[in-house]
């Protein structure tokens, strides 16, 4: 078989697989809430045409979408996929799952002032951390892995970013959206401060796109060699990332694009540390993560990176 044919077979396979998983996901949702009314069967990965930055993105529908519609995925992924490994589409965020490490590779979110605004109809206390049954049991993380591990079930796509509907919020509590995070001093504090900062950007920018994920960074040991070392927790050996990143692009009313990029260590960070300390050049995150963020944007088109003019 020629390599070209192998390539096209692979691409077809990936799309079909995505469609299968989303199909089962939609099926499950249908059984759960009984609302069989008008949920269309949709492919998990939109065809590439629909996510091109050049294509027309329909304006936000008045009614909130509860399924992962191509138009919503197209909006979220407007500036490109960082990678295509095990992509899962939820109603308001997109995730790529790292089956070896049992945590995400990345999650992508699109925030507006409306989607992060306080909404009495959405109550985070009603959400439960639950296993993601669309993930094969071999690679699924469970609550038992995290209990008494010393780590929080740390959201990659934050619950507070998805307030248009209870279901949007519920879906951020899938354990496939979690990575082990240090609790006090990180997840519940410094990392939360960064999440809050991203939400605040919607006050000044009409659209905020953010990619979040784990890093496993090397360090030099006494023998002068460099190693990557990280803990794994529970019976499912869930990886404890050494760092986490957020790469953010904010779109102002005049369509100028501003990028910010942060890497924070997964450890206790003093509350008096300003988050600007953790700003790093976006390329360095890309090199470490093995991913390209917002690759539909030429970096020279950006108005600023980390607050600095280009």
């Amino acid at each position: 078989m020629s390599s070209q044919r192998v390539g096209s077979v692979l691409a077809l396979g990936a799309t079909a697989l995505g469609a299968f998983y989303l199909g089962t996901h939609v099926e499950r949702e249908r059984r759960n809430d009984g609302s069989t009314s008008s949920l269309p069967r949709l492919p998990g990965l939109p065809t590439f045409g629909t996510v091109s930055a050049a294509s027309l993105i329909p304006a936000q529908e008045a009614n909130v979408s509860l399924a992962a519609t191509p138009s919503r995925i197209g909006q979220i992924m407007k500036f490109g996929f960082p990678g295509l490994d095990h992509v899962r589409s939820h109603s308001d965020y997109v995730l790529s799952y790292d089956r070896r490490n049992r945590v995400p590779h990345w999650v992508f979110e699109h925030l507006t002032a409306e989607s992060v605004a306080k909404n009495d109809a959405v109550d985070r206390a009603k959400c439960d951390f639950k296993q993601d049954e669309s993930i094969h049991p071999f690679f699924r993380s469970q609550n038992t892995d995290y209990r008494r591990s010393g780590y929080d079930r740390g959201h990659m796509a934050a619950a507070g970013n998805h307030r248009l509907h209870q279901k949007h919020c519920d879906e951020t509590f899938y354990l496939s959206n979690m990575a082990p995070q240090v609790g006090q001093g990180f997840n519940r504090d410094a990392w939360n401060t960064l999440e809050t900062h991203v939400r605040k950007l919607t006050k000044n920018y009409s659209n905020v796109y953010v990619c979040t994920g784990p890093l496993y960074l090397p360090h030099k040991e006494d023998d002068g060699k460099t190693y990557v070392k990280y803990e794994v927790i529970g019976a499912n050996t869930v990886a404890v990332p050494t760092h986490f990143y957020k790469v953010i692009v904010s779109e102002s009313a005049d369509h100028k694009l501003h990028m910010e990029s942060y890497v924070m260590p997964n450890q206790v960070i003093s509350n008096d540390t300003p988050i600007s300390v953790f700003q790093v050049p976006p390329e360095s995150v890309e090199r470490s993560a093995g991913l390209l963020f917002f690759d539909q944007i030429n970096r020279k088109q950006l108005a600023t990176i980390n607050g600095k003019k280009i």
Partner: peptide, 20 residues
């Protein structure tokens, strides 16, 4: 103590455009 620190930090953040 924390509230005071956060206040300071957010003020730092405002005027923060350290050129790298």
């Amino acid at each position: 103590v924390r509230a005071v620190l956060e206040d300071q930090a957010s003020q730092d953040q405002e005027g923060n455009a350290v050129p790298t």
